[in-house]
Each structure stands twice: as C-alpha cells, then as structure tokens.
Nucleic acid binder design. Sequence first.
DNA 1: CTATTGTTAGTAATGATTCTCATTACGAAC
DNA 2: GTTCGTAATGAGAATCATTACTAACAATAG
Lengths: 161, 161
Amino acid sequence: MRIITNNSANGLGAETLRRRGFRLTGPRRLILEMVQGTDRHPTADWVHRQVRRRLSRVSLGTVYRNLRLLVEEGMIKELPGIAGPQAGAARFDGNTTIHHHFTCSECGGIRDLSEAVDRSLDRRMAARTGLRISHHRIEFYGRCPACQARQGRRRRSRKRR
Amino acid sequence: MRIITNNSANGLGAETLRRRGFRLTGPRRLILEMVQGTDRHPTADWVHRQVRRRLSRVSLGTVYRNLRLLVEEGMIKELPGIAGPQAGAARFDGNTTIHHHFTCSECGGIRDLSEAVDRSLDRRMAARTGLRISHHRIEFYGRCPACQARQGRRRRSRKRR
DNA sequence: CTATTGTTAGTAATGATTCTCATTACGAAC
DNA sequence: GTTCGTAATGAGAATCATTACTAACAATAG
Ligand SMILES: [Mn+2]
Ligand SMILES: [Mn+2]
Ligand SMILES: [Zn+2]
Ligand SMILES: [Zn+2]
C-alpha cells in the first residue's frame, strides 16, 4: 500500500490524505504530529523549530505550505488572530472540535475551554437578525494564573512564542 | 484654549486628549473621524485612503501611529484578527461599547450585532475554570445577505478592503 | 526669546507569509 | 530496474502589514 499504516488514531487524517491522493511524507507527517501533539496553539515558526529537531532540513516554506494544506483538508484548524502581545502571527489548533478559548492578555497564551458550545445561540441570533449563521466562537480574555503569579512588576515581558 | 472647541459629541475624546496633553491635530482629527464615522471596521489602509481625500499629504505611518494612540486612549478599539478572506490586517472599530460581531466568511465583511452582552457568562466561566476573566467577545460566522444573493458562481471574488 | 516637547512626512527596516523555480522523491507503467 | 509524469521540497526572492527612525516643523512653557 502506498499510504500510512499507523496513524490510525486520527482516522480522518490518513483517510482524507488517501482520498485526495496526498502522500503522508516525512515533513508532512511531522508537521501534523506537532500540531496535534500540543495544546499550545502554535505558530508556524514554533512548528518549524519542532520539526527541525527531527528532520533538520525542512524549510519554513514547507511548514507553511503544509499547514495551509492540512487546514484546507480539515485536519487542523487555524485560529483567527488573537488579541494581546504576539498578535500578527497565525496560530494553528490540532483540536478540530468546536470549542472556545481563553487568551491571556498579558503573555498571549491560549487555553482550550472544554465547556459545551451552545448551538441554540446561533439559531436565536439568526432569528433575531435574519442572518444565516454557520457557527460562532467565543474568546475569553483575562490574565492567566502564571501571569497573575509574577505580580505587576516585570509586566510587558514578551515571552517566546 | 488650546484644544478643540467642537467634537463635544464624543466627550471622552477631547477630554482625554486634553488631560494627556495631546493636540487634536488635522491628521489626528481626520483619522478619528474616519474610524468613528463608519461601521465597516476599517483597516489602516482604508483609513489612510479616506484621510488623504482631505489632507493629501498624510503618511501611512501617521495613520498607524495615531490609530494605535487612539486605541491606547480608549477612543477606538482594535478588533483582534478576523477569520476569512483579508485576514492579516488589523481592523479598527469606532464603537467602543462592548458588542459582538458577525463576519461573512466569504467577503470578510464585518457587522455589529446589537444584542446585549451576557456578563454572567464571564462569571460562570470563571467559576468553572478558576480563571480570572475580564471579558469575552463572540464572533458569529456565516454568509452575508449580499454574498448569498450572488449565488455560488463568482465565489472567491476578493473584494477591496 | 529660547528650550522643550509634540507631530509629522518620508523612508528604511522588520516580521510574517507567500511565491517562484530548480531539484528531488514517488509511484505507475513499461 | 529504467522511464516518465506528477507531487513535494528547499532555498531564497517577493510581498504585505506594521514599526522604527530621522530630520524638520510647530506649539508651548518659562
Ligand atoms: Mn484550541
Ligand atoms: Mn464593531
Ligand atoms: Zn499569561
Ligand atoms: Zn459577504
């Protein structure tokens, strides 16, 4: 067979790739694994650094190219810009289920919130406005525990993303 | 007096400027007016084009500088990245009240939603997660009436922002 | 008047992302 | 296994949005 044998965990992944005739190449598999294997909603740059630890020759262009491809295939998602420090860089999410986020307005860290999504909100809003709504996402903001710990001082300390 | 005489409508504006010792200069006033005078959540580039119709020599740098300043002063807000086409450019909002948005996933247009904001959601979420939440914003997605009109065909037609 | 501070236009510099192109890896068919 | 068409990649140029820097000017304080 010409595609992957393992990776059966994320069934959709391999299946989608096969259907579209894509190969799960070395770089591509690593990129997918990195995004799926973390909950930090990484930037392309972070993924690149991680991938290079295993395949040192992978280029940043390949990382972008494949991230976009994987998003298109629905295997990962892209998080529309986040407020706060470190804005301006795309972030990716291996968790493709619908869920909301908490963003620390100080360090820019993003956490998944497991609370259920209220589909009825879409219906109600649609009814009131006449708009056709496909979905919604809620972004919560505040300071994360870590940032609350190191009180006031040392604010503005941008942390690597 | 050394500041503005009119512009009393958006009281906070003039007041804030005076307090901080800022002047409401020509370029600055126009930039503020442009953002406050539209509901299209414009990009810096759009504001620049508008301002130039009145003061043709205003530079893009000045627009950015003042947009950031006005955001810092709380006179306008910046919308953290929006999904869909035309992502990647900051958007500004003259409506400083807390409100939610509807974004057309096809043309990228953004509409204000006047529905009330549920502050209790913050409290409930905070209680459940232990996070300290300052606020939240909800982004609804779908296709706007206009995009629904010109059906299927002519999709992917990026429109100027 | 003179020093200080606020503002600006113009332009160079950045950071993130996309594009281009020559090269390589694969898989299917001889 | 050699050949051939296509997918995928690395390297670097190009593009876009944004910021930084600079020199000149204007308003204000003393
Ligand atoms: Mn997530
Ligand atoms: Mn708005
Ligand atoms: Zn934090
Ligand atoms: Zn639309």
